[in-house]
Design a protein around this nucleic acid. Structure first.
Lengths: 226, 226
DNA sequence: CCTCAAACATGATGCCCATCATATTTAGTT
DNA sequence: AACTAAATATGATGGGCATCATGTTTGAGG
């Protein structure tokens, strides 16, 4: 972690719009006074499974993934967070050690918020707590949906769903086959074959590592269960 | 739903010990004054996908499952709640329609807590909110772990994990092969074959529909990834 | 600019497990 | 007690997809 020289202000932070943490101007002002800016280079680890959470991280800019490593060396991507996303909250609020690793996927600026001060904010601003709870509950839905999809949908359907999701949430971002596979719950080879087929069907176009969606509705019908 | 004649008191409710909702005596007293007792017979539906949540349900006694139905008629069990469990909170706090069905698996007594009054409790008792958030975050972990297990573990491993989980949380409960399958993310036939093998290996014993675990460590080693 | 690891791309192989089928037993209902 | 739908139990079959293998291309760093 590298502390930045200048302390960026939350008041002029664009990520604030998309953050479940910054519900009211009041709360933003308090968080601004307790947060610490820090920077991670692409590939750097923010925290690792087993460590004790001491606070949480809000993404100011960049991209962070939460992933778990299975015994046989495979990695699975639980969540991906862009600007406004919050990383490390689950273990902190569950009051247990981290269960996943957080990795910066590109150069990333985070705001670290120590837990004691954070809990104080939540105690003093109940509406901020309920607002954040909404976000957690949506994450829970996503996780449960992912589990169901893993059973009900074919691998190619999950790939279609994945590229739609990644496009919606992180426009113009480039993804490797491996990254898509770890998100969709399959292998890079299967992602390959699915993408080739989608291109053959005129649903997408691949410009280098960038995927352009040509026929959104068509792709969606591939992703959706009948 | 059937309202019971007598209004059971939270103060003498044994389920309270296991409930993330009843954190302090103060909170229990307030909830006691706003809750409504209701009864569901085995098999009855408590709420259905698409409906708007108007409150949440705390399990006083009995058993409730949350399940989603996939297009091809298959059902998947997301969560199972016994005494002290809370049903319907995810959609309520996410402020969206229910995404799953809640079904009473046996005769069940629930306490219904209307949302307006509930939010009031949370606003006035921040520590109760944070306590409940801990529970939600653990549910999130369970869901994400289930997704990972679905990929990394073989079906028989998930069955071993399932019967250990169900035993730990709902002792002396009987489960059909189908119920276990819907929890473990597989089919009744696969559960069958796994149980037969476990019995052959001396890990379990089946008395009718009751599964007795003979060798807990052995079963655990079947469930765990190396 | 050159180098080399990583990513892309496609084919071949095998196996786990869902699906279907069928016979038997259980348990809930009239 | 009779009846019937559901649950148990086991075998046979096939397909989806992970795995392995191999060649090509890309792009980041010295």
């Amino acid at each position: 972690m590298t502390a930045t020289a200048k302390k960026d202000s939350c008041l002029s932070c664009e990520a604030r719009q998309n953050s479940a943490l910054c519900s009211s101007p009041d709360v933003v002002r308090v968080i601004d006074s307790i947060k610490v800016n820090c920077h991670y280079k692409a590939g750097q680890t923010i925290f690792q499974q087993g460590q004790e959470p001491l606070g949480l991280f809000a993404v100011q800019s960049g991209l962070v993934k939460l992933e778990v490593n299975s015994h046989d060396g495979h990695a699975h991507t639980l969540r991906i967070l862009g600007a406004g996303g919050v990383v490390g909250y689950r273990s902190l609020f569950a009051r247990e050690p981290y269960k996943a690793n957080a990795v910066a996927m590109e150069d990333t600026n985070l705001c670290y918020i120590p837990k004691t001060e954070l809990f104080q904010v939540f105690v003093e601003h109940p509406e901020a707590t309920l607002n954040f709870m909404q976000s957690i509950c949506k994450d829970l839905r996503s996780a449960e949906e992912k589990w169901v999809d893993q059973m009900d949908k074919e691998a190619s359907e999950r790939v279609a769903e994945a590229i739609l999701f990644l496009q919606d949430h992180f426009q113009d971002q480039k993804w490797t086959r491996k990254e898509i596979a770890q998100w969709a719950g399959t292998t890079p080879e299967t992602v390959m074959r699915a993408l080739s087929q989608f291109e053959k069907d005129g649903l997408i176009e691949q410009a280098g590592r960038k995927i352009i969606i040509l026929n959104r509705a068509g792709l969606y019908s591939k992703a959706a269960q009948i």
